[in-house]
Structure formats: structure tokens, C-alpha cells
Simulated assay, not measured.
Amino acid sequence: MPHPPEVVFTYLADPRNRPEWQASLTSVTLTDRSEPHVGMTWRESTLVGVRPRLEITHLEPCRLWAERGRWHGVTATLALRFTAIPGGTRVRADGEVTARGPWGAAAAAAGRLASRAVKADLERAARVLARA
């Protein structure tokens, strides 16, 4: 992204911004209105009706932000790593979707599709930041 790590991290680490750049979301409901911090939780409403509860699990400004989301028997993790590069910031995303019981097949399918979705969402975030 053609912005410094401070700008990219601040934008992506704040759950309030997610509906702007995450295509699958319709809204985010925070449990508190403070600045992002480890332990902060929120609930997302998605286009397909899934309403996971998410939590920030790691927050190291301008370097690493991670979350864990749960919905029924499905757990998803996502970590964003930020690296300053000439002219901007590289964002690397790593994640995993797991499930127990009858949700196993759906979680496996979601995991296979997640890479493309996360890449598209981060490209969308770059476009939003370019307009700011």
C-alpha cells in the first residue's frame, strides 16, 4: 500500500473501519468504544447472515495485529503483519479457519476461499486510503 505503516496499521487495526474495506460485512457492533486494544471485542454482521464475535488477540503498533473470531463451532484467526517498504507498506495476511462437528466441511471450504477474499479486501482498503 502506498502509505506509511502508521497510516495503514491505524486504519486496518480499528474494527470500526472494517465495513469500508471488508466486502462481506454490513456492520460492526463494538462492545466498547475505546481505541483498539488486546481483548477488544465486537460482533460483525455479514451479507450471508453469519454474526461472529471477534477479539483482538495481538496488537503491536505498525508491526502486527491479530484477531480470533468464533461463530457456533467455527473459529477463524487472522494476523496482519506490516513492513515498511520504499514508498509504502507491505501487509502480509496469515489465517486459518477450523471447525468441530457438522461445521467442518463449511470451515474447510471457507478456508480455501479466504486467501482470495482477504487479498481483495486489502486491495479495497488501499483504494479507500488513497481517497482519504
Rank of each mutant, 00 (worst) to 15 (best):
A110D: 09
R51E: 13
N17A: 07
T10R: 15
R68P: 03
G95H: 04
E96T: 08
T98Q: 06
E44Y: 04
A108E: 08
V97A: 08
S115K: 14
S27T: 10
E35N: 07
L59C: 01
T10L: 02
G101L: 13
D32S: 15
V91I: 04
E35M: 09
L113W: 11
R18C: 08
A108D: 07
V8W: 15
H72S: 12
A120R: 15
V97D: 00
V48N: 10
G69L: 01
A120N: 15
D94E: 14
Y11D: 05
E67H: 01
A120E: 15
P15W: 05
R33Y: 11
A79C: 02
A132K: 14
V38A: 06
M1H: 14
L113V: 12
L64K: 10
V128I: 12
K119L: 14
P102H: 10
Q22G: 02
A76Q: 06
E60A: 12
V74A: 01
V48Y: 01
L64D: 07
Q22V: 15
S24W: 09
M1W: 13
V48D: 13
R92M: 12
V91P: 10
P52N: 06
L113R: 15
R131C: 10
R100M: 11
L59T: 00
T26W: 05
A99R: 00
A76T: 06
G101Q: 09
T98R: 08
R63S: 07
W103Q: 04
P4D: 12
T31A: 13
E44W: 05
L25D: 05
A79R: 09
L47N: 13
N17R: 08
R63I: 05
E6M: 00
Y11N: 08
E55T: 15
G87V: 04
L113T: 12
R90A: 12
G88D: 09
H72C: 05
R63M: 01
A66C: 01
H3D: 11
N17E: 06
G39A: 05
A23R: 15
V7I: 13
S45I: 00
H3V: 06
P19D: 07
R124V: 02
A125E: 04
H58Y: 05
P86H: 08
H58F: 03
L54F: 05
V91A: 00
L12M: 08
A126S: 14
H58S: 11
M40G: 05
T10V: 03
L47F: 03
S27Q: 11
R131S: 15
A13R: 02
P86K: 02
P61G: 00
A125F: 03
V48Q: 04
A109G: 12
V8A: 13
T31S: 14
G69M: 01
T57E: 04
G104E: 09
F82C: 04
F9H: 11
E20R: 15
W65R: 00
V38I: 10
T57K: 07
V8L: 12
T98E: 09
A109H: 11
D121F: 01
E96C: 10
R100N: 09
W103I: 00
H58P: 00
D121R: 07
W71N: 07
T31E: 15
E20Q: 14
A130M: 06
H58Q: 12
L47M: 10
L122E: 01
V28R: 03
G111F: 04
G73Y: 07
H72W: 14
R90K: 09
R16A: 11
T57D: 03
A105E: 10
